[in-house]
Amino acid sequence: MKVCVCIKPAWEVFDTYFSSSRGEIDTSAATRQLPVAERLGIDLASQMSPDEIVAVSWTDAADESVLRQAAAVGATRLVRIESESPHAYTMDPLVVSRVLAELLKSIGPEMVFFGHRSPEGGSGAVGPMVAAMLGYALLPRCVRLSRDGDLVTFSCLEDGREISGSARLPVVVTVHPAAGSPKSPSPLGIRRAIKAPLEVVRIDAQRSEVDIRATGTNEWKGRARQVLEGSPAQMVQMLKAQLRERGAI
């Protein structure tokens, strides 16, 4: 059985800052890492007894190390997609999904793993979109997974509730960070990862139809410091009204 793990290298978010002079997010001091959910995806993929775990990523050559990190924790084949890359944080999930679906069609995996959502875009849409494009069953936000033949049994999280169920292969699985702690690479794994061959596939992406008008920062600029006075019940009533007005509750 062939399994693919799709990886989105993630910026260390708190090493980025907003450059108000350029009106954009400055990532020059940040590095990109293999996200926890994708590492957990490789761990879950390994438990499915696959013949091959293919790590796939649409990323620049400079971030190739992220794919090697995937090899160190269990990926047996590495594929980097090269394409005209939109600006990292403007990534349009539809464009990304089209590119990944095209590659996955040619690989033909029976299971495809994604992280639940990336720290940058955070839309959590790529996994579901790829599932729809490939016609695979979607198992979103999985925390546990097992396979018996072509029957996959899963537990997942949905708005704070745990749901369990099953589906037949082929499936797309998105992995929730609550799935556990990812395994650390072994010295042997690290040695294998350094030498692992890396395939580069060129796919032309369709043009994004999302027009970016502006980016800005939500960083704290100063608080209102409004003192609410009265009895506990009155203060709570006033607070509730204020929070409603702000859209906080």
Binding site: F14, T16, A214
Partner: peptide
């Protein structure tokens, strides 16, 4: 975006 640190 970026865990709510920025918006687009």
């Amino acid at each position: 975006i970026f865990l709510g640190r920025y918006y687009v």
